[in-house]
Design a protein around this nucleic acid. Sequence first.
DNA 1: CGGAATATTGATCAAGATCAAAGCGAGTGG
DNA 2: CCACTCGCTTTGATCTTGATCAATATTCCG
Lengths: 224, 224
Amino acid sequence: MLTPNTQSQWAQEVPRAGRIAAGNGLPESIELMGATLPHGRNEEIFGENEPADYVYKVISGGVRTYTVLADGRRQIGSFYLPGDVFGLETGDTHTLSAEAITESKILVIKRSALMKFAQRDNAVAQRLWELTGRELHRAQSHVVLLIKSAKERVVAFLLEMAARCTGDQIDLPMSRQDIADYLGLTIETVSRTLSELESTAAIALPSSRRVVLQNRTALNRSNA
Amino acid sequence: MLTPNTQSQWAQEVPRAGRIAAGNGLPESIELMGATLPHGRNEEIFGENEPADYVYKVISGGVRTYTVLADGRRQIGSFYLPGDVFGLETGDTHTLSAEAITESKILVIKRSALMKFAQRDNAVAQRLWELTGRELHRAQSHVVLLIKSAKERVVAFLLEMAARCTGDQIDLPMSRQDIADYLGLTIETVSRTLSELESTAAIALPSSRRVVLQNRTALNRSNA
DNA sequence: CGGAATATTGATCAAGATCAAAGCGAGTGG
DNA sequence: CCACTCGCTTTGATCTTGATCAATATTCCG
């Protein structure tokens, strides 16, 4: 059960193709409009305020979007995993920066081509709008997350990540610093909270990047 | 200058019609598709998870959207003022509840009619998408706001409200509790922070609902 | 004028930040 | 193969910010 599976679960290329085509992304036909590019760990994919001429889809690996405040604090907006689309804007510039968390393959699609396609096909336009709607919903949940206690935030994060994979074992592609900057906490608080959850047997931490949910009931209780 | 203007600045009906038609809302023609309804203070306009069959536009007054956590904590998502559109969803239910902050007139439009219109007119579809995009941007800014210190949050709130009206005088339609629930703080902290800003002459508080920005430079310094 | 709701101010407390020091683990070179 | 290093993570001690508890003060209405 805890067989050390050295292959990260996110390394596989788009492991849920069916679901993605159905609700998560864009029609497959559209994927023909782009090229897949490799990105190294921590490599920038686009920067805040840059022209938003492309839309992106994670094929393998993982991506974080973020903004940096004047004094250096970094806030991560979202994590994107294989199958997720990111970088779609209604305005003409990106509102956040994006970086690869790990070695990633990213499908890049010209926005103008996508828009031309949407103009002819209402269903595509609808799909694009829904994508923005989903991002909005994500951001609204993020707001609610940030008013919770540290324990509640960490638990919510774990449940959110768990919801994106099958089973109770999560392989986190991101560092403690990334998690902290997503949750509005410090790495120390994230680490301490995880240790505490482990000590109450709610989770197991076979390694720092792997979390096993052992008691979802207890976790849900800690989720306010 | 501080003449007690008992008429709240938000009581006027859509004071910036030009700007609204241009970028803020929907073509005026569409407003013919709906009816204007009055709502009393604290009256619910729609509830979370209810079918999103209508789209709304503030004609006069003000609206708050919010969600309530299991333990009773309330998080306000946004404040809407005259000219603002709210309640537009890509899914089929509302993700937040909405209430009138003060006596308000609200234009109600059937979503199905709007969608039919959008299907024929690409520009309208585009406008609706942009509206969702604007909400997304708002929510992302809200996330960034919530990682800041109490003082920074209050200052950001004041600057945000000031950006929505002309001049340095702001009439707040909402209570301290509303502000606190928007900023993820307590009323005491909001009150203390406003008092502190007043004591440093950054703002004046001629009454609890009226704020005058006296030193934007100082405020921007406190905005990280 | 009276009373309820709302806002301010004060005193204390606690959650999480900060400062500091080990611990661990993957990769490197002797 | 082992020791060393570098980056990341964990753990500990203390401090700070904002929450909580409590007592007025003010405003808004009937």
